[in-house]
Design a protein around this nucleic acid. Structure first.
Length: 425
RNA sequence: GGAGGGAUGGCCGAGUGGACGAUGGCGCCUGUCUUGAAAACAGGUGUGGGUUUGCGCCCACCGGGGGUUCGAAUCCCUCUCCCUCCGCCA
């Protein structure tokens, strides 16, 4: 949610942001008109309310019944008048709110202007791409051959885009989750285990509703929705709270499953485990003061990078262009790992500085130590790595000529000392 | 699933139609006193919105929404959440 004051005072900045994102800037004018209307209606209705408050107090003291009744009649009329203006005001506010809540965040000046993800900029590449003296296989061949990914039974259970991990495959994923959460705790994040389902207002606060309703699973009898990422419950944790400045920054990490209907990418990436309706992820999340968010962003990027580096997987750091930048994001880095079997760069992590965009929608504020007005916090979120894609990177980068997989060293203690995944495993 | 009881400011807790944005206590801040601290005493201490150069003024908010009324924390309806008991089930 953008600050109405910003839209009012610097509409050009907002229009420019929309243009950079290839969106229609015309709602800005409509918003300005509605905002003006809103304030006029408020002035009118509050003036009348003030009058009613004064007269009502007088009525309580009146002895003369005739005069008293006359005032009561007068106030009844005034009340009807107030109700009428109130109805207009409400209609204007609903329309205004709908338009403002669909405005995306303003991109940071550093964000390259582009059409889509092909305009994302490579910031750095870390690690050497592995060389193979054989033709590396994609994970959708390796997994079934080793008996660690069962696509057929996943489809039997739940349909397309589902799979079953088996044996050391399941254990490898569990080890990755355990190891990642532990690493983030060491990096200074507090571990959380939130609900995987939340109420609609929490999704609104995180910016997922109303715009992305199609992408979410929902309980149709209750206002309960499956989370598409741990970012959603973590954002909602402090909804409507006023934190003390001294508490900040708050850094959290959480493992959750994530559920996405993938309506927007129907038919894409249907092969393998890259894009499922359900996947696991370890998330990083920070609430901080506005002036600290760029530094916190850098910190989260390097914490996520450490995860990739310790696994011994080559990756590249991308800065998203305005064509790829998420709705609520101010600036986003992606970590992409190379998958030699699929022969593509996999987005394993997306680390965003959201600024006060979610804080405004969720009511996340703090009171400065100097006692001045409350401020909105800045929020940042990032995957400490998405599991399926990290799993793909491990399987495809660590594969051997005989089809076996060497287990990354850091995970071996969590896998009972196993060093290699072989067929029949 | 059945029966009943609750939800008030940072916390505790009064308030059942008009002077209540809300008594009181605790906590916190400031001042007086003190070498310092404590104690005591005095004052202050919510959020959002509108308006104003500013001081300020006004409006709304007593779990959420709606209603009755000239006027609602207080009465009515409804939803959510919490507690107690019974039943059922992991």
């Amino acid at each position: 949610m953008l600050d109405m004051r910003l839209i009012r005072e610097e509409p050009e900045r907002v229009r420019e942001a929309l243009v950079k994102r290839h969106m229609d800037p015309s709602p800005v004018d409509k918003i300005l008109t509605l905002d003006e209307q809103r304030r006029q209606l408020i002035q009118g209705v509050e003036e009348k309310r003030a009058e009613r408050n004064v007269v009502s107090k007088d009525i309580a003291k009146m002895k003369d019944q005739v005069e008293r009744q006359a005032k009561i009649d007068e106030m009844r009329q005034l009340g009807d008048n107030i109700d009428a203006i109130d109805a207009d005001l409400k209609a204007v506010e609903v329309e205004l709110n709908a338009l403002v809540s669909e405005l995306p965040n303003i991109p940071d000046p550093d964000v390259p202007v582009g059409v889509d993800d092909s305009d994302n900029v490579v910031v750095r590449t870390v690690g050497e791409l592995p060389e193979f003296d054989f033709e590396p296989k994609p994970h959708w061949d390796l997994g079934p051959e080793l008996g660690i990914i069962d696509f057929e039974r996943g489809v039997k259970l739940a349909g397309s885009r589902f799979y079953v991990l088996s044996g050391l495959g399941a254990r490898l994923q569990r080890a990755l989750i355990y190891w990642m959460v532990d690493l983030h705790v060491k990096q200074g994040y507090l571990e959380k285990y939130p609900p995987f389902m939340v109420r609609g207002e929490i999704l609104y606060g995180a910016g997922q509703l109303p715009k992305f309703e199609d992408n979410l699973y929902k309980d149709h009898e209750e206002d309960l929705w499956m989370i598409p990422t741990a970012e959603v419950p973590l954002t909602g944790l402090h909804m409507d709270e006023i934190l003390d400045e001294a508490q900040l920054p708050l850094r959290y990490t959480a493992y959750t499953a994530c559920f996405r209907r993938e309506k927007a990418s129907a038919g894409r990436d249907v092969r393998g485990i890259k894009r499922g309706f359900q996947f696991d992820k370890v998330e990083l999340y920070t609430f901080c003061r506005l002036e600290d968010s760029p530094a916190e962003h850098d910190r989260m990027v390097s914490d996520a990078e450490e995860t990739a580096a310790l696994l011994g997987l080559p990756y590249r750091m991308m800065l998203q262009s305005t064509g790829d930048l998420g709705f609520g994001s101010h600036k986003t880095y992606d970590i992409e790992m190379w998958a030699p079997g699929c022969k593509e760069w996999l987005e394993v992590s997306s680390i965003s500085n959201v600024g006060d965009f979610q804080a405004r929608r969720s009511g996340l504020r703090y009171r400065p130590t100097d006692g001045k007005n409350t401020q909105f916090v800045h929020t940042l979120n990032g995957s400490g790595l998405g599991l399926p894609r990290t799993l793909i990177a491990v399987l495809e980068n660590y594969q051997q000529a005989d089809g076996s997989i060497v287990i990354p060293e850091v995970l071996r203690p969590l896998m009972g000392g196993e060093t290699v995944i072989r067929a029949e495993g």
